[in-house]
Amino acid sequence: MEPRKDLLDIESLSSEEIEFLLKTAGPFKDLFEKSVKKVPTLRGKSVLTLFYEPSTRTRSSFEIAAKRLSADVTNFSVAASSVVKGESVLDTVDTLQAMKVDYIIVRHPASGIPNLIAKHANASVVNAGDGFHAHPTQALLDAFTLREVFPKSARKRVLIVGDILHSRVARSTSTLFRKLGVEVGVLGPGGLIPDGKPKEFKVFRSFDEAFEWKPDLIYLLRIQLERQKAQFFPSLHEYHQVYGVTNERFARVEKEGIWIMHPGPVNRGVELVDNVMRYERCLINQQVENGIATRMAVLYWLKPQTSSREAEVEV
C-alpha cells in the first residue's frame, strides 16, 4: 500500500486504504499476547503528542502504540507550555520542526488545525480529534471492533445515540461505517441532530422507535458537557430517562443480543446504567485494546517527509 504523509479525516481515505489499515491492525493486536509486546519498526523515530485539549485515554493509547513500535515519545504538554505564554500554533510547529520530530499527534478544540499543521510540517500528522470535525483513529478502531464481531459488516444496523451535532466521533465513525456498507441510524435530542442528514441516516425520535428498526449494535456517544455551550437538554437525569440505556432498555438489549459500543470515558448513570458495563456483549474494553492496535497500523502506514526515502529496494 502506498503510504501517505498524514491522517486527517476519514472522508479522504480510499476503500483500499481502509481495508489495508483494518487488516494491518490484526497482526498488531496479536503482538499483545506475546511476552515482548514490542517490534523495532519505528526504532529511532520520534513521535510527539500535541494536545490542546485534555485527554488521557487517546493520548495514552497513541503513546503505547508508538512505544510498541519502538519509537521515542514526547508529550508536549500544552497547558504547561509557551501556548500559555501566547505562542501561535504555527510557531509551535516551527519549534517542533526544529526538534526534528517524525510524527505529530494533534488534538485541538478548533476544527482544521491538524490540516494547517500538516501543511506546514514535514512530520506526519495524525488528527487525534479536532473540534466537531473528525477523529479518524477512533473511527478506525470502531470499525476494527465491529469487524471482529461481524466479519461481514455490510448491511448490519448500527444505532448511534447521543449528541450527534457536537460529536466528531459520530461524524468520523458514521462516515466510516457507511463506507463499509453499514446502515446507520441516529437517535438524540432534537437540537443535537444535524439538519439535512436524513438521506445518510435514519433519524429516530425515540428509543422505542429505534428498537423496532432492529439494530445489531448500539453506539452510545459520550455526553460532552465541556463542549456544549448552550443547553440542549434540561438535565442529565432527563437525558438518561430519554436517551440513556436504562435498566428497562438494557433488559431489551440483552434479550435481543444487541452489542454495545461507547468511545469512553463512560458517564455511568447518564449514557448507560452500571449493568451494561458487565454485559458480555459490551465492547468498550475491546475498543480500548483495539485502539492501540489500530493506531500502530496508522503509524506504520504513514511516512513522514523527514525520512530519506530512496528508490524501491528488493529484498
Partner: peptide
C-alpha cells in the same frame, strides 16, 4: 513468522508491505 516489522529497510521502501499474522 512475518518479519516485515523487523526489517531494517522500511524507510527505503516506497510502499508499506501488508503484514501477515505471526503465529
Amino acid at each position: 513468522l512475518d518479519i516485515t516489522l523487523y526489517r531494517d529497510d522500511l524507510d527505503n521502501l516506497g510502499t508499506n508491505p501488508a503484514i501477515e499474522s505471526s503465529d
